[in-house]
């Protein structure tokens, strides 16, 4: 049995999205990708190929756009996204140690997703709450003045 990670994706949602944009021009590129990401959680290669077949937009072009904007993901995302700040304020307050602690704890590099698909780990430039530095954000929850020791307990809240 193929694992569920390899199972072919259902193209029905993509088909519907493409139909709605017919005839698609390059102006529709970003809206189409957003809808696809909403439907699938990320931009799977095989779905992008399907979108290309149906709209005539080029895979290469979509890939270029998808990698240009931070909002798009090309890998399947974990159930929770952890954003750890690497901005100046956080850096000064030991943000690097926090990043390393999360790496150790989850055994992933920034940009990667844990094998059990629980977390996707990202680092960002500034979370806009520098007074709380160092800051970690999990989904929509902010955690300020984080220490390496508190990481474990923060992560344990998300299962």
């Amino acid at each position: 049995m193929p694992s569920d990670k390899d199972a072919p994706l259902d193209t029905a949602a993509a088909t519907e999205i493409c139909e709605a944009f017919k005839p698609a021009t390059s102006d529709d590129l970003i809206p189409i990708l957003q809808k696809i990401q909403d439907a699938y959680g990320y931009l799977p290669a095989e779905i992008i190929a399907e979108v290309s077949r149906r709209t005539g937009l080029q895979v290469s072009q979509m890939y270029g756009v998808a990698t240009f904007y931070e909002q798009f993901h090309l890998e399947r995302q974990g159930r929770y996204t952890i954003k750890c700040c690497r901005g100046t304020a956080c850096h000064v307050k030991g943000g690097r140690d926090i990043i390393n602690a999360i790496k150790r704890e989850l055994k992933v590099e920034p940009g990667e997703t844990t094998g059990d698909m629980r977390f996707t780990f990202e680092t960002v430039a500034c979370l806009g709450t520098c007074f709380l530095a160092p800051v970690v954000m999990v989904e929509n929850d902010y955690y300020g003045h984080v220490t390496t020791k508190s990481i474990k307990s923060i992560l344990s809240r998300y299962t």
Binding site: A45, S60, Y63, T67, Y69, L74
Partner: peptide, 24 residues
């Protein structure tokens, strides 16, 4: 894109990381 129309190449990423690449 324009002459060969093979659409094999694109720019990947942004800012200082930009590189020419293929889709995926």
């Amino acid at each position: 894109d324009e002459v060969q129309m093979a659409h094999a190449l694109t720019f990947r990423d942004r800012a200082a990381e930009v590189e020419v690449s293929t889709a995926f």
